[in-house]
Design a protein around this nucleic acid. Structure first.
Lengths: 191, 191
DNA sequence: AATTCTTCTTAATCTAGGTTAAGTGACAAA
DNA sequence: TTTGTCACTTAACCTAGATTAAGAAGAATT
């Protein structure tokens, strides 16, 4: 539970009362692997903060091909921002990859937090700024780097996550087919 | 001048006094085409709001290849978010493509606005949320769509901008070489 | 008017990564 | 124990888009 308070304390200072109010607005839940937290075609109602376990978000295009938007491990927030903001049906799935303890913050409670503790505007602004920066970097990487270089960046960003998830999901994240990823990985091992 | 007040009014309501305070914190400047507003390797000190004209941000990788992050036309904000937030040297250039009237908001004044009119936390949070969503969509498009489809999306997003800028910059935005773009365009015309 | 730059084009050739297909091993269900 | 499913591999072949190079036409400098 302290993980999320630490996460908040990095950016804003809450009084004890504010902490209590915040805690009253969230819910801790345990989800098993393969649980779907949000679905393409439906309105996303929550933000999720991962206490433990692994979660991913991805979309599926016409072809049945999955593309991973992001992974979230302990200490990360995850949601379908488009759907959450617009309250229209989104096109992301959010799925638990490894049994997880997750803090659920509903959209309504988030709005209430903004009203009751305006500092949370700042907190979430900073969170989103950081996501935006990370996302812009990833976009540029996809425009200018080779698959090998993108894999290297993935490794730096996610550390040992690579050994906890099926490798076809790493392929999907860096934007290549599982077959090509397998070939590439072997090429790298032989060096 | 009213353009930026409209832009703000879309998300937060300011009193007349607050409007005046805001206006005292910004500066209107006119820049000619080719002016560089921010440079790779330097700390970005401002956010820019385009009143008229066209601006772009891009980076240059080892090879001398440019990759366009975004275009900004009248009514759009543009900056190097990474550098602006972290106040470390960035890797984007921001350049005027067509003579422009631009509102300059310095990082310091932006921080002052947050303090004096906390509603601005909300305003910029919403702006950044929208950028994040747009950026995530573009990332997914780059992972899953062909060059042709990405061009179509560019056209939908930027309308007649395509006739105001050199076509090699469209190529750079969608992530192909100018040669390939030229070929592709002719293929499309022949349909 | 001549020169230089820049943008755009065309075409030949090349390659990173995709597609298809077949096979292996691990493990879960029946 | 068999059947199925899933993750991964290997290999042959294919293609979107890159690279290289050359030339044309307009715009900008001299």
């Amino acid at each position: 539970m302290s993980l999320i308070l630490q996460n908040i304390a990095k950016h804003i200072a809450l009084t004890v009362k504010e902490q209590e109010l915040f805690l009253s607005k969230i819910e801790i839940q345990h989800f098993n692997s393969k649980t779907i937290l949000a679905q393409s075609g439906q309105v996303c109602k929550n933000s999720y903060f991962v206490n433990s376990g692994i979660v991913r978000s991805f979309n599926i295009n016409d072809n049945i091909v999955e593309h991973i938007m992001t992974f979230a491990c302990a200490g990360w927030w995850i949601s379908d921002m488009y759907s959450l903001i617009s309250q229209k049906p989104g096109d992301l799935f959010i799925e638990v990859l490894e049994d997880a303890e997750i803090i659920v913050l509903s959209k309504e409670n988030q709005e209430i937090l903004y009203q009751e503790i305006p500092k949370f505007e700042r907190f979430f602004r900073i969170l989103i700024e950081n996501s935006l920066v990370a996302n812009q970097e990833r976009l540029m990487d996809n425009l200018s780097l080779s698959a090998e270089e993108r894999f290297e960046k993935f490794q730096n960003k996610y550390g040992d996550l690579q050994h906890k998830i099926p490798q076809k999901q790493i392929a999907s994240y860096i934007g290549v087919t599982p077959e090509f990823f397998s070939k590439m990985k072997n090429r790298l091992l032989k060096r």
